[in-house]
Design a protein around this nucleic acid. Structure first.
Lengths: 237, 237
DNA sequence: GTCTATAGTGCGATAGAC
DNA sequence: GTCTATCGCACTATAGAC
């Protein structure tokens, strides 16, 4: 390995969870406040409780068979709500998809930026970015999987914003890699191509969760492995 | 970089295409011969011509909006066939999906094994496996993308065989990595985890084709980059 | 071998009682 | 705030003329 000279102790997954507190409850409260116009029900507690229920059920069913294949009747069975009640919280099936997509992306961007900016120096920032992205996708695995898989079914406008999101996270890594190259610390590889490789490895974690679970590989082990591989490449003489 | 000492000149994409000749025509001829029972039409030339048409259209539409969202009326419009004619070649929409999936997997496995067995020594075999997989997914990009994206919509039996296919290709890399470790050539990394990382990078090529196209990155460049990154990791002292 | 016409099903969405 | 009942539609699949 390349050793960890100068790199502070890594953040564990447990520490991350305590630190960020991404709770479904809070997310749904935000969604309610932003979408008051299209939600018929007025009592906040009721709305939040039912939204949490609806989103969890949607993520579960969609990850099993895809959002398009999931019918609203499936969703009613899973949530215990009737069709009528369901339509008090969403105005259409497509809107449900939109909300889940955009909310997931916003949280990702917010948490990623906050955590990365707390680290100094290219190596620390790179490690932090990798760890944060993996930990976040572990906490919100279903959300990440959903977002990745359902992107292609959207219309052109929304499909474009999914590509933007892909490039946004990639750019975070590109910037760190360029910074490291300018400082003379990272010596190998094209930053853009290297960032793509990193993203590919990060995505594999939530896209093939079944594989890593079966092998008892923890998210920390996986993160270490990714950082080691990237570093052995970019730090090579 | 780690240099190419002892590694023969890389196969170019052009050479690969000439060598393998995976033609849609041949594939459809095979499909016809294996599915004579469920195809109502008897004249081979007609069947092959229409099957090529149907498969190309299915891949095009599915990659745009997903197999489930694509209706058979969309497919009729794209192929120029009527509903009645379409149903002379396939017995159901699900069967169409099954045929495309299994045929794609079979070709992948066949070509991969043939090419890899033609290389000697762990480094050559690793490079050959990476190049062959990338070149193959370039020739059959739509097929690979389709297969990856539509896997989740299948029933449990077929979903299981998709996981098997994932593990099959992965095992090819695991075996090469173990071989290299036993010979003392590869010194770093857990073979199973490293193989997963390699697969992740290979898949990114056909899943984000739009990204690499926009950046004018050729499949040869990409292959070189992947091999370099892996080698810098496993060959590190 | 290909067509048009249509049967039969199950979907998303809504109205109105409670 | 939640329910049941139902509308209208678009889908897969088939029958039968040509």
């Amino acid at each position: 390995m390349h050793g960890n000279t100068g790199v502070r102790a890594k953040m564990t997954f447990g520490e991350f969870k305590e630190m960020t507190m991404v709770s479904m409850d809070e997310i749904c409260r935000d969604i309610f406040r932003e979408n008051r116009h299209s939600i018929k029900i007025k009592k906040e507690e009721t709305v939040v409780r039912n939204l949490v229920n609806i989103f969890n059920a949607t993520l579960k069913l969609s990850n099993e068979k895809g959002f398009r294949t999931m019918t609203l009747r499936d969703l009613c069975a899973e949530t215990g709500l009737s069709m009528g009640a369901l339509y008090s919280y969403i105005s259409s099936k497509d809107e449900l998809l939109d909300i889940i997509q955009s909310q997931g992306r916003r949280i990702t961007e917010k948490v990623l930026m906050e955590r990365i900016n707390s680290a100094e120096g290219p190596r620390e920032r790179l490690s932090m970015a990798v760890h944060t992205h993996l930990y976040l996708s572990e906490v919100m695995q279903k959300w990440f999987f959903f977002s990745y898989m359902e992107t292609k079914n959207l219309d052109r406008r929304v499909h474009g914003s999914a590509k933007e999101a892909e490039l946004f996270t990639e750019k975070i890594f590109v910037d760190i890699l360029i910074q490291g190259k300018e400082g003379g610390l990272f010596r190998q590889g094209d930053p853009v191509l290297t960032a793509s490789m990193i993203k590919a490895m990060l995505q594999d974690w939530y896209l093939k969760r079944w594989k890593y679970k079966k092998r008892n590989i923890s998210v920390e082990e996986y993160a270490t492995n990714v950082v080691d591989m990237i570093e052995s490449y970019i730090l090579a003489e």
